[in-house]
Simulated assay, not measured.
Amino acid sequence: MSNNNIQIDGLDELFSQLDKINISDTVRKEAIGEAADIYGNILISNTPVSDKDKKNHLRDDVTYKKNQYPDGSVDVGFSKYGWYYRFVNNGTKSMPGKHFMEHSLDEAQPKMQEAIINRIMEGD
């Protein structure tokens, strides 16, 4: 993707380039927050719900908090029952993995990248 002589080919590179681009901390945090919203919402929609009648589902446990760290970065994942997602995602010897984490990230990456670039281009 190319815009104003900036060439970025993926989220990892985009995040590393944010330090090199002269943007305010406010814009940086807002851009990262928008990306976290996108990934969090996609993760919620892609997280499987147990077909058993349970009170707690992994989908209800997705969590992220904007401006979680001083640099504006955000952890998107699971809270109370977070350890359980690994069994559903990766599978066990008696159940195949659903790989919803990988599918969610693959689905979210282009949307996250676009949101970050758009927010940076808007400026202050």
Rank of each mutant, 00 (worst) to 15 (best):
S45E: 11
K20M: 04
S94R: 12
Y39W: 07
S73C: 09
S104M: 00
F87A: 11
I23T: 01
D9I: 01
P110D: 00
G40F: 00
E30C: 01
K93W: 02
N22V: 07
S16H: 09
F15K: 13
R59L: 05
D19N: 12
P70A: 09
M112W: 01
F100D: 01
N3V: 01
K98R: 13
K29N: 07
I120D: 07
V49C: 13
N41H: 10
G40D: 02
F15E: 14
A108S: 04
R119C: 01
Y64W: 14
Q113F: 03
N67D: 14
S104D: 00
K98G: 03
S104I: 00
Y84R: 15
K65S: 15
G77D: 11
K98S: 07
E102H: 02
S45M: 07
S50Q: 15
N89E: 02
K93F: 01
H57I: 03
A35C: 03
R59G: 05
R59I: 01
F100A: 01
G72F: 11
F100N: 02
P48G: 09
D75S: 15
S45P: 07
I21M: 10
Q68D: 13
M121G: 11
A36E: 04
E122V: 08
H99V: 03
M121I: 10
W83V: 07
V62I: 10
H57N: 14
N90V: 03
P110C: 00
Y85R: 13
S79D: 14
N89K: 02
P48A: 11
D12R: 13
T47I: 01
K111L: 00
Y81Q: 10
K29I: 00
D75G: 15
M121D: 14
P96A: 04
I42W: 05
M101H: 05
Y69S: 08
D60K: 09
M95E: 07
N22H: 14
L18D: 08
I8E: 12
V62D: 15
I6L: 07
G10A: 03
K111V: 00
N4A: 08
T92R: 06
D61N: 15
E107M: 01
F87D: 10
Q17L: 11
I38W: 08
Y64R: 10
Y85I: 06
K111E: 02
T26P: 13
K55G: 10
A31V: 03
S50M: 13
D9S: 11
I117T: 09
D25A: 03
M95D: 08
I44R: 13
